[in-house]
Design a protein around this nucleic acid. Structure first.
Lengths: 246, 246
DNA sequence: CGCGTGCTTGACCAATGTCAAGTATGGTGG
DNA sequence: CCACCATACTTGACATTGGTCAAGCACGCG
């Protein structure tokens, strides 16, 4: 991958401390009242990545934390022979900062044009100490990530291919609904079949076949290659949880 | 499972605030200087579980946090049809408290006679606020758990059966060595083949066959059913990381 | 309109799961 | 101390799921 230089935007545009964060109920920024949010802006700067561009690699020193405002990142680990496990996808509103011993535990790459706001880890930490609400929020987020990781372990360790894909759709649906509160039917997939496969512990061929099966079972419809319409939400949820595999 | 009443021990024995914690470099207690550790004792009580006895179930309200001092617990989630994924094993020195929204995300059961010290979540939190070292330690632990969960995702999503078992042995070995700093050769397995299988996303038969294969390859020796001797540490590590599967 | 890339589909294969004996181990009671 | 029993582990034969390899298709970009 020809590592393009990361494009630096202006050190945070006027009106908006964490440019774009307020559009969704964004992690971290979301818990701060406007005044303190404005204060936080001095710690951060804006950042843009092109498709395929890495934000950091596994093992890099972790001196920054990030808030995704637009686009999508893939987080992954590689085995020496190239097998890839995608740990998750970061989308607008997600906070990216967890690390142990100051090193990133995975690689983060944009899979489409992506914007983030970046904070120096140290300054961010200082800021956190003065704002317990922020620290509490970070701890809460860590808890959520852990819960998500555990759900993913069940998926990878014990679910069949159909169950994995159904669970994947359900979690994307749930994610959307957590933002605006109202039910959704359409899922837009910013990631390729390969990426879905590497996230679900399958191959791209199996993912493709399972899409076809779910289509035949009238649980979904493919409005386009990257656009899934959920036709039977409850049916899909049942498959995801492992019922109905009679 | 006939849920025996949890056996309550005295509200913490004299000399030792967190009875047994000091034996190993125990999470949480380990970071506190003796004086503050003594102070912490007033928040906690001692607890003993028999083999098979649950500490809490998935979905239970999480009002306590625990430190394991002896024995082993299995943490697991179930699918509706009974498939089980074990998220991990808690052993002496481990801290058990993570939860989201005040609910436990998994079931915890003793797989052998087990002792813990228990703290009320609220009092523990109060104590934490006065001891930043403790809070920092908790945050650090959460980071470690997350890293472990991510490594397990790679294992479950992308590793073969042999690689999984080899990784399992290596992580038990590493765990021992993190405590006393010196290299180990012997691994005692407190858990059954079934439990190993449910942890690694395999069946007990496959686990058994892989044990046999590693024995044939002279990487391990079975000193007893529950006692593994590692004959070739580097060889085993290579298998675990996915090299050498020519 | 044509090309490239990524997606789909098919045929076949390998790894692991399932089911069923058979064997070892450790605990219990004589 | 030994014999027996229950349980857990091992091993074998076979089934199944999902992976591999290869061809064909289709979408989207130029």
């Amino acid at each position: 991958m020809a590592t393009l230089p990361v494009r630096e935007l202006s050190p945070l545009p006027h009106g908006h401390p964490c440019y774009g964060c307020e559009a969704r109920k964004v992690a971290v920024c979301g818990v701060l009242p406007p005044l303190e949010l404005a204060e936080l802006k001095d710690c951060g700067s804006n950042l843009q990545l092109q498709e395929g561009q890495p934000l950091f690699h596994e093992g890099d020193p972790a001196s920054q934390v990030y808030n995704v405002t637009q686009g999508t990142l893939r987080l992954y680990k590689l085995l020496p022979d190239g097998r890839r496990q995608i740990m998750g996808f970061m989308m607008p509103g997600d906070f990216l900062g967890a690390s142990i011993g100051g090193e990133h535990a995975f690689t983060a790459e944009a899979l489409e044009p992506t914007r983030l706001c970046r904070f120096g880890r140290a300054r961010f930490a200082d800021f956190g100490e003065e704002h317990p609400a922020l620290e509490r929020e970070l701890y809460r987020l860590a808890g959520h990530e852990l819960a998500a990781a555990q759900a993913q372990m069940v998926l990878l360790g014990r679910k069949s291919a159909v169950e994995r894909v159904a669970s994947f759709f359900m979690s994307l649906l749930d994610r959307e609904e957590r933002f605006d509160g109202k039910p959704h039917k359409i899922i837009d997939l910013p990631m390729s079949r390969s990426e879905i496969a590497d996230y679900l512990g399958l191959t791209k061929e199996t993912v493709s076949r399972v899409f076809a099966e779910l289509k035949n079972r009238r649980l979904i419809r493919l409005a386009a290659l990257t656009r899934v319409e959920v036709l039977d939400r409850h049916g899909l949820a049942d498959v995801a949880e492992g019922y109905s595999e009679a």
